[in-house]
């Protein structure tokens, strides 16, 4: 056995190296904790969160034309669209729309299949509820979007 490794072993060099790593990490700049309700996390532009339905900003009408492509694309089959045909213009329009968020896995296939860019997965992520009932979103809630939650202490 050569001398250098033996000396390194006796003087605990390996252990001291490890100790120095953990000691250096105590520097306040190294902290990565986010204090969640006070500090909001960073959310990417393409984030897939709570679904929303877009409305035409000028008229307030839904962009949905009731084609049902999203319902077909959904792997969990949690979107139900009913549509009717306008007797005058012979155009399809959506009559009701429900989206069951409790089973959603946020794969984004609905938003990719939508021809009018109506349904989209927005950047909202605070979807926790105390019961499953409120998780089936209807058209009104989908268009309005989530109500921001106030956290009080």
């Amino acid at each position: 056995m050569s001398v250098a490794p033996l000396l390194r072993k006796i003087f605990l060099v390996d252990l001291i190296k490890g100790l120095s790593v953990t000691f250096r990490s105590q520097h306040p700049d190294e902290l990565i904790t986010e204090q969640y309700p006070l500090e909001r996390p960073w959310i990417a532009e393409r984030y897939r969160g709570q679904p929303r339905m877009a409305v035409n900003p000028d008229t307030g009408e839904s962009l949905c034309n009731g084609c049902g492509a999203c319902a077909l694309a959904c792997p969990e089959k949690l979107i139900t669209v009913t549509s009717d045909r306008d007797p005058v213009t012979k155009k399809k329009y959506m009559t009701s729309y429900t989206y069951d968020v409790s089973r959603c896995m946020f794969c984004g296939l609905c938003q990719e299949s939508c021809p009018t860019d109506c349904i989209e997965l927005s950047q909202d992520y605070e979807m926790a509820l105390y019961s499953r009932e409120g998780m089936t979103l209807d058209r009104v809630r989908l268009e309005k979007g989530p109500e921001p939650t106030e956290y009080a202490r």
Partner: peptide, 13 residues
Amino acid sequence: KILAHMQVRLGPM
């Protein structure tokens, strides 16, 4: 606290 700071966390806050 100290363990948390070694592990780049904040610990109880």
